[in-house]
């Protein structure tokens, strides 16, 4: 397990189909985990609100983009001042392509303009919107680890700077 790297505090696991059977699960999981990881912070409400806002975006992206069968795990922790979030999900080719493409996009120098465009241009909601938001608005560092049957979406966010 990667508990040293994540400084794991808590994790939640369920079947991906259970997770994606109800939209409110994103809200429930993010609110629940945010409350727990924020208990010890100086201003727990402030921290929980910000943490939940960021985690919920990740969960919403995963809700729409995952493989058909398997387990879903969301693990959160802290290393120093950095919050870590890891979401393990089953993947198929389409899912893998989606995440690897988005990550490449996040490295582009014009990622900020891309984010603004996906916010304000007409048309369907861009499936990448939540990840763009995390990268631009929260300066999250994001990566994807690929194993045989699971893909791990990992985000590191320093929430302290916002305050």
């Amino acid at each position: 397990m990667c508990s040293e790297r994540t400084g794991a505090i808590i994790e939640v696991s369920m079947r991906i189909n259970d997770f994606s059977s109800e939209w409110m699960n994103c809200d429930r999981v993010s609110t629940f985990m945010a409350r727990l990881v924020s208990q010890k912070s100086v201003d727990p409400m402030f921290h929980a609100n910000l943490f939940s806002t960021a985690l919920n975006e990740l969960l919403e992206v995963v809700f729409f983009n995952h493989g058909p069968q398997g387990s879903f795990t969301c693990r959160v922790g802290r290393v120093g001042d950095v919050e870590t979030i890891e979401i393990e999900l089953p993947y198929d080719e389409k899912t893998l392509n989606f995440y690897t493409d988005v990550l490449k996009t996040l490295d582009r120098p014009d990622v900020e303009e891309l984010y603004q465009a996906s916010l304000f241009e007409a048309g369907q909601v861009d499936a990448r919107l939540g990840l763009l938001e995390l990268a631009v608005d929260y300066k999250a560092k994001m990566s994807v680890l690929v194993a045989a049957d699971q893909l791990t979406l990992r985000a590191e966010i320093a929430l302290g700077w916002v305050q």
Partner: peptide, 17 residues
């Protein structure tokens, strides 16, 4: 307004614009 996801934010932003 304590929580606002990016889907709602986008919709609000476009309405205001």
């Amino acid at each position: 307004l304590a929580y606002l996801n990016s889907i709602a934010f986008r919709a609000l932003g476009r309405l205001i614009a």
